[in-house]
Every structure is written in structure tokens, then in C-alpha cells.
């Protein structure tokens, strides 16, 4: 059965317990940051920060709104990162999440180039290119696997207002739809359950009171077209062309050797005839 996380920004108080719990459970250290005049901190996802709450100040209908958005891997069903990962380090879990097998990571960074949500991060050595990608593992890192042990992910466990919920994806999307209807009834006409259908269904869904871009989320995210051109057309074509070339060269060898030998035989015969005659 597919599982998911449901995030309701209206319930979020931006206490960032989830941020801290994520770091604590996954043994990611704190990073020194500088004040940028906002409570939002750190400023971006990093290899040590797999989850962060973004703060947004918006004006709607003459009212000031402080919107909080959860930023982390969205665990797409149609995940561009899984499509492009050349080593199989990124895969789908049977629960629907995108799991990460760090041992296998080659550090190529294709996942970061192709992720529609720009969530994978890595520390890259400029000269050698050596790197290891990092992203939310949904607390399923081997040895630290909360989900297999029957617990909720650390972020959900730590949430004091139930802005984060973990459960069956079907139940949570039903719950999300109900909340959207309630929002719409109260005049939030743009209210939208983000992630229910995006990219074949995300495994982190958002109960948005407004259109996605207000929350800094991409409207109608897509697997980049280059993914298909590369992985579904060019690469299979490359295998075919490579194999056909090797077969073709082999055939040429057989044909050419045969004709060459028969030519030599007739030449010899003619020489012999000439010598005799």
C-alpha cells in the first residue's frame, strides 16, 4: 500500500521542529549561517539540510499573510531522478517513496540537473568532481529505518500541530480533498490539493489555500523533456547502433575473408596454369 505525507501550511507555525528532528534522526550536523533579516534559516537546502520550512510574506485581499512551506524531496511517482540515475542509487520503494542508496551514488549530479523541485544537494569537489548526493530518505536509511520499524518519519513525529501527517496515500488524499472543500467554502477559491495528481502523484501532498506559485511551488511540474529524449530515445538508440556496428563489422570480416581467400585461390590456380603452360 502506498504511503504519503500530508502537509497543511495553515496548521504550520514554522516552529521548525521538523527541521531539527530531521537533522537529529539522520545525524546531519548543524551549519553556521548568517542572519538575512528573516526567521527563515538556513537559506537553502544543503547536503546536511534535507528539509526546511520556507517563509513567505504575501498580501491577499488587503490582508497580510505569513505562509510557511515545507521544502524537501517530494517523492514523485514519475521521478525524473530515478529515470536519470545511472547507478540505481535512486529507486522507488514499494511504499511509493524515492529511496536513496548512498553507497551506489557516483556523484554525477544528474538527479540535481533533472529534479523539477531542485531538491537534491551535494558537496562537489570542483577539481575531481567527487561528490555524494543527499536528499530526504523519508527516514529509510538502512540502520536508521523508522518506516520499516513501524514509526512515522522523524519530521512527522516531531510536528506539534499535526501540520504533517503520515499515513496511507489514499486516506490522506481523501482527507486533503475534504480540507480543500472546507477552504473553498470559506472563500479560498484557489485552494488546491497539490501533489494529488502532479507527476503521477507526489508522496508529499500540500493543502494549499491558494495557487501553488503563491507558495513558491511549480505549477504543473513536469519531468524535463530532455529526460525522454536522452533516456528513452537516444540511449536505446545508442545500444542498438553500438550492437549493430559490432555485428556489422563481424559480418564484414566473415564476408571479406571468404572472398579474399577465394580470390587468392583463383590467383594461385592461374599462376599454376601459367607456370604449367
Amino acid at each position: 500500500m502506498e504511503k504519503a505525507i500530508l502537509f497543511d501550511p495553515a496548521l504550520c507555525t514554522a516552529c521548525r521542529a521538523c527541521q531539527v528532528a530531521c537533522k537529529q534522526w539522520n545525524a546531519n550536523g548543524a551549519v553556521q549561517t548568517t542572519s538575512r533579516g528573516s526567521y527563515e534559516n538556513p537559506s537553502d537546502l544543503t547536503p546536511e539540510t534535507w528539509l526546511k520550512i520556507e517563509f513567505r510574506e504575501v498580501e491577499r485581499n488587503g490582508n497580510f499573510d505569513w505562509l510557511f512551506t515545507r521544502r524537501a524531496c517530494m517523492h514523485c511517482t514519475d521521478a525524473a531522478c530515478v529515470r536519470v540515475c545511472p547507478t540505481g542509487a535512486l529507486r522507488h520503494h514499494e511504499l511509493g517513496f524515492v529511496t536513496y542508496h548512498k553507497d551506489l551514488c557516483s556523484g554525477c549530479g544528474y538527479c540535481r540537473d533533472f529534479c523539477p523541485f531542485d531538491t537534491p544537494r551535494s558537496e562537489r569537489d570542483f577539481l575531481t568532481g567527487l561528490a555524494k548526493m543527499e536528499k530526504c530518505t523519508l527516514c529509510m536509511t538502512p540502520g536508521l529505518d523508522r518506516v520499516a520499524a513501524g514509526y512515522e518519519p522523524a519530521c512527522v513525529k516531531s510536528c506539534p500541530t499535526d501540520a504533517l501527517k503520515y499515513g496511507g496515500r489514499g486516506e490522506l488524499s481523501a482527507e486533503g480533498r475534504k480540507r480543500i472543500q472546507a477552504l473553498q467554502a470559506r472563500g479560498y477559491t484557489n485552494a488546491y490539493l497539490y501533489g494529488e495528481k502532479e507527476l503521477g502523484g507526489l508522496h508529499v501532498m500540500y493543502v494549499l489555500g491558494d495557487s501553488p506559485e503563491v507558495y513558491g511551488l511549480p505549477t504543473d511540474p513536469k519531468v524535463p523533456p530532455a529526460t525522454f529524449a536522452w533516456k528513452d530515445v537516444l540511449q536505446p538508440l545508442g545500444w542498438a547502433v553500438g550492437a549493430l556496428t559490432l555485428v556489422g563489422l563481424g559480418l564484414n570480416y566473415l564476408v571479406a575473408r571468404k572472398t579474399k581467400l577465394s580470390r587468392e585461390r583463383t590467383d594461385k590456380k592461374e599462376e599454376g596454369n601459367a607456370a604449367r603452360g
Binding site: P86, T87, G88, A89, D103, L104, C105, S106, G107, C108, T128, G129, L130, A131, Q235, G238, W239
Partner: peptide
């Protein structure tokens, strides 16, 4: 090639093939 043919992908782990490539 190790990034091009999926069964060879494991040879690329930890990025040493990428370092050689550079």
C-alpha cells in the same frame, strides 16, 4: 560506458570512474 549501460552502473559508485574520466 559504465554510466551508459545500466548493469555496469555499479562500477561507477563512489565516482572513481568519473575522476578517471576527468
Amino acid at each position: 560506458l559504465v554510466l551508459f549501460i545500466p548493469p555496469l552502473g555499479t562500477l561507477a559508485q563512489d565516482g572513481w570512474s568519473r575522476l578517471l574520466h576527468r
